[in-house]
Write a protein that binds this DNA or RNA. Structure first.
Lengths: 385, 385
DNA sequence: TGGGCACGGAGAAACGTATCTTCATCAAGG
DNA sequence: CCTTGATGAAGATACGTTTCTCCGTGCCCA
């Protein structure tokens, strides 16, 4: 015991009170070296099973828990992934404010955990205050604006970044987005088929990709079909502005007979506005909005919604990120040829790989003039999709 | 330069490619020692402002970011707080499934960030897989069951634990909970005043504090008032079971003329059941349920809900936790008398300090027989409460 | 003239792990 | 009998900070 205690290299007389057991204590108790303990516990090195199990047993008995901080410092990997929302700039936290974020964050958390990572929610602002204090293996960014300085710095400092939403000019490792153009065109076609003659759009004033792509798709469709665009734009982060914009849209002289609202609250706002103007839905006005909320299954009438499938997005984003994290560093497990430190995340300088994911239109009464049956909503698989 | 480079203690010939600048590089570039850099950047030590600003400037120029891992290892503080939900045991993630968790988590995240901490969402299960890999300064536990092994181990290993929900037998540093008894009694009184003669309860079969306290309060009230208890219990984590239980409750021969549902979906379930039995709300049946969802402002009729004020809870829990974290270690900033390492979190062995927080009853049409006005919902302050 | 003391700063020891390198031993093969 | 290789395990170093301790200067005051 004295030999083992001596070789630990500590001050011999230091009385270690209630200190948590470290790897040294385990080594001393098991009568082996630190190296052996580390190898035994991590399944590395060449050790007979007997030694391995003995060390494990001693560690268990002492209640040994490896120090995450030390491991992170040594290996350069923390098992932590950042998640941040940058759009809607200075707002404190839009998180879980909208169902999309909530669902997406939940799926991302779950996906990360199932691969052994944990998720940290971080604010888009306050740069060094919090960000620098946390060792992140990578970051998920939701809706990065063009030339987001935060994303740029992260990327520059070597942290993989995967964005939800096609990035504008910021360099990211990869990105995932819905096929917004296809989604909007699908909705416009759907409304046309339901008998719409003039389709209006409720859109936003911000410059994020979602708003831009959707609006462009709408304008392009109008141009092709020969309809004069009828739309109102408002600052999407201001809930009160949405109701006003909905009202404005229905008050126009060229009032549309169908409206698609890009944002979650637009459905109820439009419904309320329609009521004020004495418009019946869907008879006088067809309604669709983009939302993940199941509130719209219970409104009168139920409103057709476009789901962006945030769960699928969150899962995909996280898996892409972890692939990027592990693809460079740990590789296939062979240690041969690791000449360079894990720097070269971006071998080429081409555009980052992007993935387009489909959306789902949940058709309800608000966009169907023909069949007045109210039961709708195609059976959704109970799974994660 | 050579002298500075030499004193850095590195292999002199090592070509440091694209490595991130460390504190040594800053020291070398500024022509000072590592100590001085650390002191200058952290606002410690005795340094003239000129040196301080010069070092800061050099650090900025080199893009120096301190290594969070190294700092954590050295200081023993990571700035990370865990958040976990233990009730509903094996479910993958109830997070953001219910509005309560979503709101609570959001508030907790926000509160943590405003004090310089970040929140990590962790699963209640899978013990060492993820938990051990993360250096946590403390943990928030939502609804810990009696004798939760996870909580016990955390507490034993010296990590402060604050629970949302009065803990049963697990040792925690502190806890926060609503005054569930007062809330239930308030609702029962409210229903009585609205004319209820026989009040039923929709409750759960699990043993968490919320369910137990609420049910006990109901039973006690019944006993005092002389009403025979009329209640149905079901496994709260099973959404389908809720609808069945609601149906069962209204199908009883001693059918109540008012019902309070303990869980979020009870409102819609009870409303649907009432419809099936041809009961008008509120004329034939008064309805109240506990929920944070604003869906109930839009149902027909709007349903009176009890809000547990999760934002307030989340904020309080996190602040208590951070107080516990910092109260022991950093203290008031004076370094005198720091004889002992930060071990003694629990000086006494009395019961942990608990805080009871008020709830809020949002009265809507479903529980008012008199005034048929539908506009309700007292003006809520726009602030964080 | 010498002893303190405030100032400005440097040295070096941790923090606890992972891993690279080295070493001893023993069996087998030439 | 010497070499080789596999096996089992120990030594030592590095990860990048923070912080305790200590040292040299001036300067003031006795």
């Amino acid at each position: 015991m004295t030999a083992a205690a001596n070789q630990s290299g500590r001050r011999p007389t230091a009385s270690r009170r209630l200190e948590r057991a470290g790897i040294r204590d385990v080594a001393a108790a098991a009568g082996v070296s630190i190296t052996t303990v580390s190898d035994a516990l991590n399944g590395k090195g060449r050790l007979p099973d007997e030694t391995r199990s003995r060390v494990r047993e001693v560690a268990e008995r002492l209640g040994y828990r490896p120090s995450a901080a030390a491991r992170t410092l040594r290996t350069g990997r923390s098992g932590l992934i950042g998640l941040t929302v940058t759009t809607y700039g200075e707002e404190p936290f839009t998180f879980t404010e909208f169902a999309y974020f909530a669902e997406m964050a939940r799926a991302a958390t779950s996906a990360a955990l199932s691969r052994g990572y944990a998720l940290v929610v971080l604010p888009a602002s306050s740069r060094h205050d919090v960000w620098s204090n946390i060792a992140l293996d990578g970051t998920v960014v939701i809706d990065p604006p063009d030339q987001d300085p935060l994303v740029s710095e992260l990327y520059r400092s070597g942290v993989p970044v995967v964005s939800d939403g096609k990035p504008g000019n910021c360099p990211v490792t990869a990105w995932v987005d819905n096929d917004h153009e296809a989604a909007v065109l699908g909705i416009l076609d759907h409304l046309s088929e339901a008998g719409a003659r003039r389709i209006g759009l409720l859109t936003g004033t911000s410059t994020d990709t979602y708003t831009r792509l959707s609006t462009d798709a709408y304008l392009g469709w109008c141009h092709r079909v020969g309809q004069e665009p009828v739309y109102e734009a408002y600052p999407a982060h201001d809930p009160a502005a949405g109701a006003v914009a909905a009202d404005r849209l229905l008050a126009r002289p060229d009032r549309p007979d169908a409206v698609y609202g890009l944002f979650d609250p637009n459905g109820t706002d439009l419904l309320a506005a329609a009521r004020r103007y004495g418009l019946r839905v869907p008879d006088d006005l067809l309604l669709v909005c983009c939302s993940e909320s199941d509130v719209y299954a219970g409104t009168e009438p139920p409103i057709t919604t476009l789901s962006l499938k945030p769960r699928r997005i969150g899962t995909t984003v996280v898996n892409l990120l972890i692939d990027a994290i592990e693809g460079v560093d740990s590789g296939t497990g062979t240690d041969t040829g690791r000449l360079f430190p894990p720097r070269f995340r971006t071998a080429g300088t081409g555009p980052p790989p992007g993935t387009l994911m489909p959306t789902e239109l949940i058709v309800r009464a608000s966009s169907e003039r023909r069949s007045p049956r109210t039961t709708v909503s195609p059976p959704r698989p109970p799974g994660e999709g």
